[in-house]
Structures are given as C-alpha cells and as structure tokens.
Simulated scan of single mutants.
Amino acid sequence: MSAPNKSYDPVEVEALKPEEIERMRDEALAAIAVAAGLDELREVKVAHTGDRSPLALANREIGALPPHAKAEAGKRVGQARGAVNKALAARQAELEAERDARVLVEEAVDVTLPYDRVPAGARHPLTTLSDRIEDVFVAMGYEVAEGPEIEAEWFNFDALNFPPDHPAREMQDTFFVKPLAGGSDGDAAESGVVLRTHTSPVQIRSMIDREPPVYVICPGRVYRTDELDATHTPVFAQVELLAIDEGLTMADLKGTLDHMVRALFGVDLTTRLRPAYFPFTEPSAEMDMQCFACRGESAVNPDRPCRTCSSEGWIELGGCGMVNPRVLTACGVDPRKYSGFAFGFGIERLLMFRHNIADMRDIIEGDVRFTLPFGMEI
C-alpha cells in the first residue's frame, strides 16, 4: 500500500479509476447473474466480496490518497460494493426459492400410503387385566406372590384341608404328573405331583415363608381336565388373595371385595356374599358383583332386560371366606392369634364380563384380530 501523498492525483491510481471500478462491479454482477446454484453463488461471493477481491483491494488504496481525494474515491468504491452485495442477496433469495420448490417436488411424500409395513401389535387382554388387578391390590399394600405350576399334592390339596377322598383329587379333575422314569397312568396318580388346579398353593407357600401378618395377591395359570368349549378351558388364569393378621373378620373381606369391584368396574357397585362350602375356608361364601351394565335394574324391571347378567342383576365372580383354622395350623400359623380371609376368581371370566366376550376360545386361540382392538395399554 502506498504512503500518503497530498500531491498524488487519484485518477492516476489504476485501481481507483472510475472505469476500473465499473469494470470490477460489472464482472461481479455478471458472475452473480450466471451462478447456477447456491454452492456456485457462495464461490462467487468469496471471489468478489472477500478480503482478496478486486473491490476490497481497491478500497485499501483509498488510504494512500490525499485527504481531499478520499471522499470521492470512497463514494465510488462504496457504491460499487453496495451494488454487488444487493445483487448477491437478490440472487441468493432467488436460488433458495428455486431449491425449495424443487425439494417439494423431488421429496414429496404420499401421505395416503401405509405409514408402516409392520403393523402395530397389541398386548393380550388377559395380561393387561391381570396387571390392572395386581395394581389395585399393590396400591392397598399387598405383595404379588408366585409359585411353581407343577406342584406337590400336599401343597395343592392336603395343606388346604382337602380330605383324601375329595372328588377334586380324582383323575377326571386333576392332571397328575408321571414320575421322571416314566410309567403308566396309574403311576402318575400315585406320583404325588400334579399340575396345580388353583393358585391356592401359592398361599400355602406364602404362609410358610413369611411371618404374619401376610398380605399377598397370587395370579397365575392353573390346569384342570375340562373340555375346551365356549365357557371352559383346561388351562386358564386365576388370581387369589390372602390376608392373615390379628382380628380380621368377614367385614374386612366384604370391604376388600367392594373396593376391588369399584376399582375394576366403577364406583357405586357393591358385592354380596351367598353361603357356600369350600374345604379351605370356614365360613365360606360365593361372591357376586352387582351387574355393571344394568346396575341391578333388570332384576326389578322386566321391561329392561340385560344380556350381561341374564336379567338377574348380579354376576357371580368366585369363592371367598375366612381361612379355615386347619389350613393355618398346617402352615404353622397359630389360629388362636391370627385369622385371615381369601378369595379367588378366573381372569378369563372377568374379561368376558368386562368386554361381552361370548366364547372363551377366542381368548386363547391367538388370533390377532381378537387382541388388536385392546391396543397397547400399559
């Protein structure tokens, strides 16, 4: 860069001559006009507005001019650089608009096409309902207990006060397991090992493994030699509850049943107890729930029949009662100090009530058309 010289004529500085400034400006405008894309325009911008561009170098020469010549030269260079920057901005906006229009065409998505080739799955409603039941009782302070599905006869029958000649021990009701070395069906009946017919053995194991008080919920699969039809299946899900503590009564059982029904089916529903007999409870009762569809009105109003409860106003859920003192004694619990209550019901039956399922075979056949409407509730 030249040193200041008051007698130097600016027209004699080649880079600052008017025709030279116009030439630099016109070259830049021409390059901007023919830039075919944003990348090419970026290169043009560096070449004509960067630190080493002709107009930038000419601007540096202004400092060497005498004071009276700087204003005119600066105005001339500034106007040229302003025109170039304005052209750059206009061309960039034009190229960006072209790019956006092209992307809309080239990357268009047909929103009417299937969004996913792999269809969404669904949880089996039995699993969902079982989890919901567990949540109800865990919120009350109960513990979820589990046990083996292949069970010793003592846990499945003897500890539950089933006498040796009880019909449930016969082959027509119970699956007996053959010894490992094989053998005949008769050997299986004498093996002392069965596929559990209820989840009550989990209650026995819970009383043996825990010191009172005991509050457990016992869900799981059970096995009985039933024929598969619309209302029966040889393998089904069951859930049972056991509470052992000092001073428990039938009133505690009734209150627990009412809370369960309201939590699963809605408020204002109640339960009722009808006398019954079970070896492992005394006294025993059948547990009925007020029909959640008609709220019991169909039983007193013949003009409003109800398919859910067959116009009876009540739905039978399962058995319940106070734990038999003999069962407490078999598990090492002092019946003079502790009392308890228990109840149990089939989850398939509860699912059929809740969703008006007519055939139990639909629940177990594994057809996705049955499970999909229930969705992915967690």
Rank of each mutant, 00 (worst) to 15 (best):
V239L: 14
F265P: 01
R272A: 10
P283M: 10
V267G: 14
F278Q: 11
L264T: 04
G255Q: 06
F278H: 12
T281Q: 08
A243L: 00
D258Y: 00
A285P: 02
I244N: 03
A276S: 15
E286H: 08
F280T: 05
P279K: 10
L248W: 05
V235D: 00
T281S: 10
E286I: 01
V261C: 09
H259K: 12
D252W: 11
G255I: 04
V261S: 11
T233M: 03
K254F: 13
A251S: 15
F278T: 06
M260S: 13
Y223S: 02
L241M: 14
M287P: 01
P275H: 09
E227I: 05
D229W: 10
Y223Q: 07
T231Q: 08
A243R: 03
Y277R: 12
V261M: 12
G247V: 06
L241Q: 09
V261L: 14
L248V: 07
V239H: 07
V222D: 01
V261A: 14
G266N: 08
G255P: 03
V239N: 06
G266C: 05
G247M: 07
F236R: 06
T270M: 06
V239R: 10
P283L: 09
E286C: 03
A243S: 14
V239G: 06
T270K: 13
R224T: 02
T233F: 01
T281F: 10
L253V: 09
P275V: 10
D258F: 00
E227C: 00
A251Y: 07
Q238D: 06
F280D: 05
F278N: 09
T256H: 09
I244Q: 05
A243P: 00
F236N: 12
L242V: 12
A285N: 03
T256S: 15
E282H: 05
L264E: 04
M260G: 02
V267F: 04
I244A: 04
E246L: 00
H232S: 04
M260H: 14
H232K: 09
R221A: 11
E286T: 03
R224V: 04
V239P: 02
